[in-house]
Write a protein that binds this DNA or RNA. Sequence first.
DNA 1: TCAAAAGTGTTATGCGTACACCCATGG
DNA 2: CCATGGGTGTACGCATAACACTTTTGA
Lengths: 242, 242
Amino acid sequence: MEETSWEPPPVLLAVDLVILTLRSSRLHVLLVERGIEPYEGASALPGGFLFDSGEDIRAAAHRELSEEANLDASRLHLEQLGAYGSPDRDPRGRVVSVAYLAIAPGLPEPEAGTDASAASWLPVEEFTSGRAPLAFDHHRILEDGVEQARTELEHTSLATAFCNETFTISELQRVYEAVWGQQLDPRNFYRKVQAVPGFILPAVSDRRPTRGRPARLFRRGPRTRLRPPMMRPDPPTQSEER
Amino acid sequence: MEETSWEPPPVLLAVDLVILTLRSSRLHVLLVERGIEPYEGASALPGGFLFDSGEDIRAAAHRELSEEANLDASRLHLEQLGAYGSPDRDPRGRVVSVAYLAIAPGLPEPEAGTDASAASWLPVEEFTSGRAPLAFDHHRILEDGVEQARTELEHTSLATAFCNETFTISELQRVYEAVWGQQLDPRNFYRKVQAVPGFILPAVSDRRPTRGRPARLFRRGPRTRLRPPMMRPDPPTQSEER
DNA sequence: TCAAAAGTGTTATGCGTACACCCATGG
DNA sequence: CCATGGGTGTACGCATAACACTTTTGA
């Protein structure tokens, strides 16, 4: 196959992170303000180049997670979204970026890591609804990440990654509602979630003060693949087919 | 973030292809015999390095599809599986491979492309059931590809990519049975498939000779996302939870 | 006329949904 | 005792699975 003197072209490898969390019942994504060209001053996903030839790609994602988001890597869902490598995606040269999806529970004050001074949580709908621009092809990466989160909420226990160690069922419901962007019936959700074997487990009652009747607390169950799945109601499908 | 004189390390970018098809009602994958080190003589997925710095990754996958499998790139489903980049996956150096899943309809004689002399279709179960080894991390890539095909059969019209331009419903059923590895009721399948709007459309009757009553012919419909999904029956889930 | 595969009807069951209703707590 | 959110009961409709049955062809 190969010619005698032909050599494959080298490329630069980067990682980009779609870090999602829930803040005040809305889905937010962590973005940084770029300090250097290209796209200086624009919003971008946290990320960066592979540190050295021996670094594993997932390890690089974890490293950027600490450096740029100041997030504790342990107990954090991290999952590959795919490779993005259009020849013209980075004006500096041929850069292929491997994108990861990270899910963080709601955090008190997540801003300002060690080196990215201008990291902040922004509502995803400001970017998926066409408005604000992002550097490189990060707009597409973000959309892919949100879509993956949406479908994984159906088939995996990903939703619990948005929650703390213990959580109430209505907290879990707010995750589903925020990511899917639609309202769910609390009473049916309550039973449906508990009907999936191994999804959530009762936790020791350590109720927090609240208005209304205190809710029972739960924790993640052992099962990661949900059977049966939590199917989202069809969005208002006005046009059946064409 | 960056040091003044630090430069990101270059990597080599490869593509690998999981090309699936159906032969005599069983799922097969296209494998080549490696002609050079490393893993000389071992079976491997078709693939190769990026040709030059300007080549798009998907284009490289299409090129390898033609070169190694001699498959017409047009009308062929091609989809990214993910990036595989463990530091030690290739003894020659740091190679990151972007894997693609390709689905081909049953072909008369698919062997022997232009340069890979020893390409052949092998039943996937010989490799997923632990037995035969594959070069590099291709065993894992193959498993990921088959799993992706399985779940996409539920939610997308991927199954029609295994079929020719026109097909019968029982041909489509054989696709589902081969990929999922379980039997389906022909009568319920018959109606279920037709109940999904836009999945399959009636084609001009051009019946082929067969034993028994000739079947109606169908072609792909416009819809790629199936609503409702074709849910596979739970596999014999002996252990409920633990 | 028989075998084989395609296609249709019918029924029981289970699940999702909607919604009425009761429970427990803070103010 | 009232507002607020947590939790339970239940009925209805629809999707599915199971399977008896009819149709259409080749041999």
